[in-house]
Design a protein around this nucleic acid. Sequence first.
DNA 1: GTCTATACAAGGATAGAC
DNA 2: GTCTATCCTTGTATAGAC
Lengths: 203, 203
Amino acid sequence: MTTKKSILDKALEMFNEKGIEYVGMRELAASLNMRVSNITYYFPTKDDLVNQLSINLSQLNSEIVVVQEELTISNFLDMLEKVFRNHIKFRCLLLSFVHLLQRNHFISLRYKNTEKDRSTAILRMLQSLMESTLLKTDADLDFLASTLALIIRFWISEASVSHSKLSEQEQIKHYLNIVIKLFLPYVTAKGKRELVAYYKSRY
Amino acid sequence: MTTKKSILDKALEMFNEKGIEYVGMRELAASLNMRVSNITYYFPTKDDLVNQLSINLSQLNSEIVVVQEELTISNFLDMLEKVFRNHIKFRCLLLSFVHLLQRNHFISLRYKNTEKDRSTAILRMLQSLMESTLLKTDADLDFLASTLALIIRFWISEASVSHSKLSEQEQIKHYLNIVIKLFLPYVTAKGKRELVAYYKSRY
DNA sequence: GTCTATACAAGGATAGAC
DNA sequence: GTCTATCCTTGTATAGAC
């Protein structure tokens, strides 16, 4: 384990625990038995450190979100569940999302690119589901994509505020359930069978 | 205009502009042509100041969200639109929502009460709509209430990240539109006429 | 009651010694 | 690569002037 990686791991752990803004560099250094300026050697500013964590999350999500041919409902929900799990691992980033984008120069630059990629990826997947006759032909894909984007970005913020007593697994279940119900009016009979099958196979 | 009110007004203005965490007490005092310790005379800590703003928002919303007999779709959406306007006026609070609830002692205490009141109020309104045969009898009210709560809490966060180029009016329109489409599969024919009428009367 | 001056601890950042 | 010393800014507490 390199020094750099040990810093990243410890930082992620403490940021998730207390919130990025509320963990000082001195506190982090103390937990690592290190001097502050040793962290600064690897990450010149706190923003650099946070940015690296954000890059790591993006890479993890990129591995999951792959636009497939012949996407099924089950594949789609699987992807969503895996993204939700990544969000829990890096929850500090999601909880500080808005401020990071306003203040962290690196993150806001990178986000402009990934934002567009991600939202077109969602639309493509919905189109693929429609082509596979899993979504009705008159389903409002823009509405579904917008609402889905809102849920994906902020589910963990709401969970930390309103459902902090639930276990992580129960939180994921709750928000996956909302997504399933969001889709319910727009799936075909075939799609509905897959949706129900997915739900029953899990819960 | 009392000194106390002028502090609150200026603070709200600057917090909305730059974010609560990024406006220092010295900066605020300078804008008011007063010394920091004069602000602390009225508001011992920054949390007290923020808490007072939060109380003001709650009161404004309480005036709007009144559970009515014979609620119509139009009344319901009107209320929502007014709440959205209040959110814009106090957007700094919404944008720092998660952190405030974790760190601001006063706000987190008050929130435990208002949170419950608000979510039961939403459910009551949906039930009222159902009793007026505007919502189908098999509509999933829990799903609608949950999704609605998520949109109400975080629409402005998403807007500031993804739709900052839109005017405030366009942002409100976009998210009201999402709410309308969310309800569309669950309204009766009568409800649908009201929904469409509301939309056309506005846009 | 209203306002001011000052001090202090904790935050991030930086220059330079070894 | 690692560490010491230092700088500037932040929120806050306190003593005291009018």
